[in-house]
Design a protein around this nucleic acid. Structure first.
Length: 446
RNA sequence: GUGGGUAUAGCUCAGUUGGUUAGAGCGCCGGUUUGUGGUACCGGAGGUCGGGGGUUCGAAUCCCCUUACCCACCCCA
């Protein structure tokens, strides 16, 4: 077949291949998230990629319906690919919460699909890492959500990040007082842009999309533009929503969450009360979170979430309040890539064993098997090439350690451990090799 | 979905007003005498210039279409 007859190998817009370095980075990020979630007792679940279309549509607002991949399956059923993990979770809860009992805490790490235009850190297929606590209205769960986010970013190696927090009730309270309760969606969307386009433009948009008066705009902006010291802000907010039961409750909740987070050891510098964050998604009703990296705020929020009153109301009569958040794995990865924080390792094993003495294959196989039994990840080179070439391979793949055993060493029942970063070597008896390797690994810089 | 930009080797990019066999750096493979990689030196492979069509004696270079990526809007992880 001539070259021009070949099918062009290519991927769809917004869909990507992952080469080992990217796949290793992504998996290790997900492993970290998994460990943090588990450390708080969240349990894993999974749901299907495809759902009946009626299960998915009309849940996240118009925009998500537009961006959903949908088609008819072979049996003529209208189906959709999940757009996020929250809506399938709502269906899941409506179906199974009776067996699970409440409160129920789950995490779910899986890809989702959105047919929107791509951009830096925005793809059509991307991984989300959600965790939610459902079946409780306790503010303690809101605090726990914040603590999980905080632990998560620390575990991922970030020091400089900021969790912005707000409460929808504060905004709702104000809207109620201004007689704008039915315009909540356009108003919140406009407010969400405050950081980006400034107060004048927000006012314009408010008037245009929600038909607000100048006075209403002023009141909205007075509230959302609040800045400064936290307790002062809370006091100001209190005044601005005074008279609205919802609003006052919202301020009280904010105060509570912030206070407990502080008591739990989250430094003030990493939690910012930001009255301008609103979140586009319709289902949030209480606390809302967004997380920004200090080094790259422009990539947007890398972990967002909040509290919702009634997740599964369209599927069941049972009321299921909850709170949770979603880590944007691929967006975070794009950010880390840009910041040069992605490990370029293309090997996953810790120990490289060159096939040095070609006629001792059985010895090498036995040695590797023993090391693996001892819990090490070991790669044996498949060909008896020149030692230098084999070490070069190991070096390029980023192996931390090599174990060189040639005829002399086999005779003496010794092995040479080589630290590939420094070139330093040392000899140990083969019977002590596993222990020595573990020690060597432990003493390496992370 | 709308508007703007970009597309040349695996990667980052040169390529003069359209003119012969399209270049560099890095990377990759091999070598610098047989048991030690990352540096140095030598050599090599690799591109129908994103794809298709058109203008021209002649197109990487000009025009049209298409696809992907980047930026903005929108929305959001």
């Amino acid at each position: 077949m001539s070259n021009s007859n070949k099918i062009q190998p290519r991927t769809l817009k917004g869909f990507r291949d992952f080469l080992p370095d990217a796949a290793i980075a992504r998996e290790s990020l997900m492993d970290t998230a998994r460990e943090v979630y588990r450390s708080y007792g969240f349990v894993p679940i999974d749901t299907p990629v495809l759902e009946y279309l009626e299960v998915l549509t009309g849940k996240g607002g118009e925009e998500s319906d537009k961006q959903m991949y949908r088609f008819q399956d072979g049996g003529g059923r209208d189906v959709g690919m999940r757009f996020d993990l929250t809506v399938p979770f709502a269906r899941f809860c409506a179906q199974h919460i009776g067996q699970l009992g409440t409160p129920f805490k789950r995490y779910h790490i899986a890809p989702v699909w959105r047919a929107e235009n791509t951009q830096r850190g925005r793809y059509r297929e991307f991984m989300q890492c959600d965790f939610d606590t459902i079946g409780t209205e306790s503010l303690n769960s809101d605090v726990e959500t914040l603590l999980v986010i905080h632990d998560l970013f620390l575990a991922l190696g970030f020091e400089g990040f900021q969790i912005r927090i707000n409460n929808r009730k504060v905004l709702s309270g104000l809207l109620e007082r201004l007689g704008l309760a039915d315009k909540a969606t356009p108003v919140l969307r406009a407010i969400d842009k405050l950081d980006k386009i400034g107060p004048e433009k927000v006012a314009e948009e408010l008037t245009r999309s929600a038909g607000t008066t100048d006075e209403q705009n002023e009141r909205v902006l007075a509230l959302t533009s609040l800045q400064g010291e936290r307790d002062q802000m809370l006091d100001e907010l209190q005044k601005l929503v005074a008279g609205s039961e919802t609003g006052e409750l919202g301020v009280q909740e904010l105060r509570g969450v912030l206070q407990m987070a502080k008591a739990a050891g989250v430094p003030d510098s990493r939690v910012r009360l930001d009255v301008s964050i609103a979140r586009g998604l319709d289902y949030y009703t209480g606390t809302i979170f967004e997380t920004f990296l200090d080094e790259l705020p422009s990539i947007g929020s890398v972990c967002s979430g909040g509290r919702y009153d009634n997740l599964a109301e369209v599927y069941t009569k049972q009321r299921l309040p909850g709170v949770g958040a979603s880590l944007g794995v691929d967006r975070l990865l794009a950010a880390m890539e840009e910041l040069g924080r992605v490990d370029k390792r293309t090997s996953i094993a810790d120990v490289f064993v060159p096939l040095f003495a070609a006629d001792r294959m059985e010895n090498y196989l036995g040695l590797c098997a023993d090391l693996r039994k001892a819990g090490l990840r070991v790669e044996l080179y498949p060909e008896a090439k020149k030692l230098g070439a084999q070490l070069k391979y190991a070096d390029r793949r980023g192996f931390p350690l090599a174990v060189v055993v040639g005829d002399d060493e086999w005779e003496a029942q010794e092995a040479q451990i080589k630290l590939l970063a420094s070139g330093e070597t040392r000899k140990v008896p083969i019977k002590d090799l596993a222990t020595a390797l573990r020690e060597a690994l432990a003493s390496l810089p992370a």
